[in-house]
């Protein structure tokens, strides 16, 4: 009997797995770009002293925080077509859910960074006649951005890890393809699961580790400068 490692490289298997990984990567990138932009906007709005706006944005954040991502995926996957007659394919549903989730998490990161800029910086800006958006653009954002970056990178790794859930709404991601390969070779290579899941494990690690090492490096730099 051959070792199951051979099925990784048999036929098109390896490139099929990488193709699945690319789908996960694509969904991550799209949802991060949209979600981060949304999060910056919502984060800035959360510092505005309007009680109604605050409550709405806080509820939005808490909803996406409290409901597990798996459940969010199912909510959108089942309820959009059935109750709102919106028919999106599974990949689009995933992008939408992840973008809204990233937006919620990002708004909290942005808000946290903005309120950590000392009050007198704002006052100094107001004193030279800056209006609200100018204050945000020239005083607050440049000072807050350094604080936001490590947390944002960590959020990226969370999104990448969460793409493992795509399997559950039948996206042809790397894990789904891996399962197919294991099934197809169950007779000849009963130990296929070990090698296929092992490879996927390593692939995820290779995507996430450099990002989290980078975030930690930046955090350390900030600690040293503080």
């Amino acid at each position: 009997m051959h070792s199951g490692i051979s099925i990784l490289f048999a036929g098109q298997n390896f490139s099929r797995l990488l193709g699945g990984l690319w789908i996960s990567a694509k969904i991550s990138i799209v949802s991060l770009v949209i979600g981060i932009a949304l999060g910056i906007l919502l984060g800035a709005l959360r510092t505005v002293k309007n009680p109604i706006l605050r409550v709405i944005l806080r509820l939005y954040l808490e909803f996406f925080r409290i409901v597990p991502t798996v459940v969010l995926l199912f909510l959108f996957y089942y309820i959009l077509p059935k109750n709102f007659n919106v028919n999106l394919n599974a990949q689009a549903v995933a992008m939408l859910v992840f973008a809204l989730w990233v937006g919620a998490e990002m708004s909290d990161i942005v808000r946290g960074a903005l309120i950590s800029v000392p009050q007198h910086q704002c006052e100094a800006g107001i004193a030279i006649g800056l209006n609200g958006p100018q204050l945000f653009r020239y005083v607050l954002l440049p000072q807050a951005i350094g604080l936001m970056i490590p947390a944002t990178i960590n959020l990226m790794t969370r999104v990448i890890k969460t793409t493992s859930l795509l399997l559950l709404i039948s996206v042809m991601d790397v894990i789904n393809i891996g399962q197919q390969i294991i099934e197809a070779n169950r007779q000849t290579h009963p130990d296929g699961a070990f090698w296929v899941y092992g490879l996927i494990f390593i692939l995820y690690f290779l995507l996430c580790y450099p990002l989290s090492a980078w975030a930690r490096h930046l955090e350390r730099q900030q600690d040293n400068n503080a």
Binding site: K161, T162, S164, I175, I200, F201, Y204, F205, C208, Y209
Partner: peptide
Amino acid sequence: RNTPLLIQ
């Protein structure tokens, strides 16, 4: 920390 729970 750098791998998803699902694959774990």
